[in-house]
Design a protein around this nucleic acid. Structure first.
Length: 856
DNA sequence: TACTGGCGCGCG
DNA sequence: AAAGCGCGCGCCAGTA
């Protein structure tokens, strides 16, 4: 090819009215890559620009295609840079800039390189580096005189015995590992079975396609990135190796990998697949995704994106469907994955090593969690299928009852579903029209989008016979679609769900969970108790009690609150009773509760005044107050309790967290109204906030410290050293975004450390408890869910609760807490578990074994 | 027909 | 000028 010059390049934009800042981004990228922007030629699809306020339409674009093609022909550039989707549509006849960008294409004898339009980087400057990388790619094309080959990529498809031997010999030192799979979920589900046996209904198949891409689970390829070359092994669906031979290869590879430093990008995924499909046990020494997550939790962590950003390489992505089956294209794609993963490792490792504290979180919490959650996801949670059927029948009955009751109103609806011609009670739009336009009910509230709100809190304020059934309809559909129907596509053939935990799922360090989300299972026993353990095993839950308040007390050094914890008190109960006392409410109930408690305890009761009763009720604690009322109700044979202290405590909990994290009294007013139907005046609401900070005076000072630190540094750290970057906190103006960042600066270290304590405890339990009798099946922020063999219940109960209240990893992090940490536990179906004492009463015949723990 | 954004609501 | 934090999911409506 003839040597190319800068004048052979043409840049094609959308219209000449490019934003000044965007122009600057493009020019800087060009200069950085070594171009002289003045030597390049330019044109735009819409050469004359647009009148103010007009948007580009498809027809407009179509009209200009011949003209822009003519101009291109006239200049006859050898290289073209296309800015954004519009020029791609005009000149390539294709759209989808996300997929097209960064990949030079040979089009009608020209090298064409689409990139993001510089305007795209205006709302988020992280795209600047992507654009710069792509422009560098243009320079490479110029220098090479065409589309350059990648230098370090040299991959071999392992399809002969000889190549297997060569590959096994090459598996030493640092090896990047990755898989291509037929879908994202490795378990054979009940739906898979139905479909394989061709008994599935069309509806089931629809579900299956939505969840699993329509494929059965299989590993398509297994790749290794070594020092000089990459190895791609065709796997289950490729038909290259027999099943038996494949198992042998996996065995050999697994053995070799034990001695390597293994690098993965989201290794949990690959290890889980290998465990499910081949029973292989792989370790992850370095995970580039988790490393980047700790280096910038606000950014994206995808491999393509990171390779682009850190290495400035072109996108090597192929069509989503191609990845699910074996092909030479897929093999090339697979080789890229490991090649770049291996290149990213030293970059992130160095960056981590520059921050001792963050690196420590990576080494001692994040990386060990990979193995823990491979096992947890592999195990899954056991579902009581019989009870699930019962729950489904019940909810369907509830639903149909509600619908029948709503029938008279359905006829009046004007805005209806286009297909059925009837109102869809699930449509907020149609419902709003019926309520506020047809029935002329006065609207109370609008949503942010300016529509009439039909939220629960609005419905509750409407006086209309429909309301009750509408709420019942919503509750039943929510449970049915979210948990009964929602779980079915994920149920495996043994009756287990396998939720996926994302270790990089949140900005604070908490985990998120999906497919399905175990962390949002309703507390309603009808749903929650569906999660239990199989025959011979028991479900156990352990949680860190009031952990966020304890950590806040520690961080703020809030002596009043610390004192409550030293005395084993209950701050939520304290707030509840003090709140009521301040308003002078519940006179009768307070005295009656004190009396009931005396009676229940068999103590002599002396008549009390209100304030005496308050102190007494406060001193006995929330649980005892509830018991006393229950006892009274039973002995007097009353149908309803005279006061629901549990509700009061719940309400106080929300107040504590709200004010702790910066809630303003106006929101408290809304909260009191929506949750408890209490109309609080402005004055009362303000007073409650003042009272909270009077009770805990160190909190405002701590808030101030956190704000100051974030303002000055743009980040905060949790006790473990994990960083939460808050760039908006550094703004010099007092903007809503800065305020938001400041509240996050208060909340993040608390939420973050609570989660870390929980993970530390989970890691320790997994380390010391025997796998044959103990499995962690999930975590829910401040709680651990586990499955325990019946003969180990006592041992896990004793050791587990002790571990949670002070995991050994705290020493490694040099953390010495003032505040006592307490753990609670329950044994039995989730949400209906009992204490060990009660459990052993029931299952006394199960002989208990002890666990020997040898501490390191 | 498939994707995106807003909303409402489940959880901590 | 406006003021709890952190998630995932189902549904609807708008868009291409």
């Amino acid at each position: 090819m003839k040597k190319l010059k800068q004048k052979d390049i043409m840049i094609v934009g959308q219209d000449p009215d490019m934003n000044g800042r965007a122009k600057k981004i493009l020019n800087e990228a060009l200069v950085k890559a070594g171009f002289n922007p003045k030597k390049l030629s330019y044109t735009d699809v819409l050469e004359e620009g647009l009148p103010d306020g007009k948007r580009v339409t498809k027809t407009m674009l179509r009209d200009r295609i011949p003209q822009v093609q003519k101009r291109v022909k006239k200049v006859d550039p050898k290289l073209m840079l296309l800015l954004g989707n519009t020029p791609c549509e005009a000149l390539l006849g294709r759209s989808g800039i996300r997929n097209l960008r960064g990949k030079p294409i040979d089009h009608e004898g020209r090298v064409v390189l689409p990139i993001y339009h510089p305007n795209y980087a205006l709302h988020d400057e992280k795209w600047v580096s992507v654009i710069e990388g792509d422009v560098r790619r243009l320079k490479e094309c110029l220098d090479f005189g065409g589309i350059p080959e990648e230098k370090g990529l040299d991959y071999t498809i392992v399809d002969t015995e000889k190549k297997v031997q060569q590959m096994l010999k090459d598996l030493t030192g640092t090896v990047a590992v990755d898989l291509e799979t037929s879908r994202l979920y490795p378990f054979m589900t009940m739906l898979d079975e139905l479909i394989a046996s061709k008994k599935a209904s069309p509806n089931d198949i629809k579900d299956h396609k939505a969840t699993h891409n329509g494929n059965l689970p299989a590993v398509v390829a297994m790749q290794f990135g070594c020092r000089k070359r990459q190895w791609v092994v065709p796997m289950e669906t490729a038909g290259v190796w027999s099943k038996q031979r494949l198992r042998w290869i996996v065995k050999k590879v697994s053995k070799a990998l034990k001695k390597c430093i293994t690098v993965f990008h989201n290794g949990k995924f690959d290890c889980l697949w290998m465990k499910v499909r081949f029973g292989a046990k792989w370790k992850v020494d370095f995970d580039t995704m988790l490393a980047h997550y700790l280096l910038d939790e606000n950014d994206q962590h995808g491999l393509k994106y990171l390779a682009q950003k850190e290495l400035g390489v072109p996108d090597w992505d192929i069509d989503g469907k191609e990845k699910t089956e074996w092909s030479p294209d897929n093999a090339k794609y697979a080789a890229h994955d490991v090649y770049y993963t291996r290149l990213l490792k030293p970059i992130f490792a160095k960056r981590l090593s520059e921050d001792y504290e963050v690196n420590r979180v990576f080494k001692h919490i994040m990386m060990p969690c990979v193995g823990l959650f491979v096992n947890a996801e592999y195990q899954g949670v056991y579902i009581n299928l019989k009870q699930m059927d019962d729950a489904e029948a019940y909810l369907r009955e509830e639903l149909s009852k509600a619908q029948t009751n709503l029938e008279p109103w359905a006829a009046k609806a004007k805005k209806v579903d286009a297909k059925t011609g009837k109102i869809n009670w699930g449509s907020s739009d149609q419902l709003a029209d019926l309520l506020f336009n047809v029935l002329k009910i006065k609207s109370v509230e609008k949503t942010k989008g300016g529509k009439e709100s039909t939220s629960e809190s609005v419905l509750l304020r409407i006086d209309h016979p429909m309301v009750n059934d509408l709420l019942k309809f919503r509750a039943a559909t929510k449970q049915l679609s979210g948990f009964i129907e929602g779980w079915k596509p994920f149920l495996d053939t043994e009756g287990y769900l396998h939720p996926v935990f994302k270790l990089h799922g949140t900005v604070t360090g908490r985990l998120s969970c999906e497919h399905p989300n175990l962390q949002q299972v309703p507390r309603d026993p009808r749903i929650r108790t569906l999660i239990t353990a199989p025959e011979g095993w028991t479900l156990m839950e352990m949680d860190l009690s009031q952990i966020e308040l304890r950590i806040a007390a520690e961080l703020a050094n809030e002596e009043n609150l610390l004192q409550i914890f030293f005395e084993d008190g209950d701050p939520h109960w304290q707030t509840a009773i003090r709140e009521i006392e301040r308003g002078g409410g519940r006179k009768k109930e307070m005295i009656k509760t004190a009396k009931a408690h005396h009676k229940m305890e068999g103590k002599k009761y002396k008549k009390m005044k209100y304030h005496e009763a308050v102190e007494y009720v406060l001193s006995i604690g929330g649980d005892e107050a509830v018991n006393a009322v229950k006892h009274w109700t039973e002995t007097k044979q009353l149908k309803e309790a005279f006061v629901n202290w549990k509700e009061d405590r719940k309400k106080a909990k929300a107040i504590n967290f709200g004010y702790l994290y910066g809630m303003w009294w106006k929101k408290f007013k809304l909260y009191a109204r929506d949750n408890y139907g209490v109309e609080v005046t402005d004055k009362e609401a303000e007073a409650s906030r003042v009272a909270f900070f009077d009770l805990y005076p160190a909190f405002p000072k701590w808030h101030k410290r956190q704000r100051r630190f974030a303002n000055a540094n743009g980040y905060v750290r949790s006790l473990s050293g994990r960083k939460r970057r808050l760039p908006h906190a550094m703004s010099h103006r007092d903007t809503p975004q800065r305020r938001e960042a400041e509240r996050q600066a208060i909340n993040s270290p608390v939420q973050s450390f609570a989660n870390e304590l929980n993970l530390m405890a989970a890691l320790e339990m997994a380390k010391y408890f025997p796998k044959k009798a103990f499995r962690i099946v999930g975590t829910v922020h401040d709680a651990i869910l586990m499955m325990v063999r019946n003969d180990h219940v006592k041992a896990v109960w004793d050791h587990g609760l002790r571990i949670m209240s002070g995991p050994e990893l705290l020493q490694k992090f040099e953390i010495d807490l003032k505040v006592p940490i307490c753990a609670d536990g329950t044994i039995g179906p989730w949400g209906a578990g009992i204490s060990y004492e009660k459990w052993i009463e029931k299952y006394g015949e199960v002989k208990q074994k002890d666990i020997e723990i040898e501490y390191a």
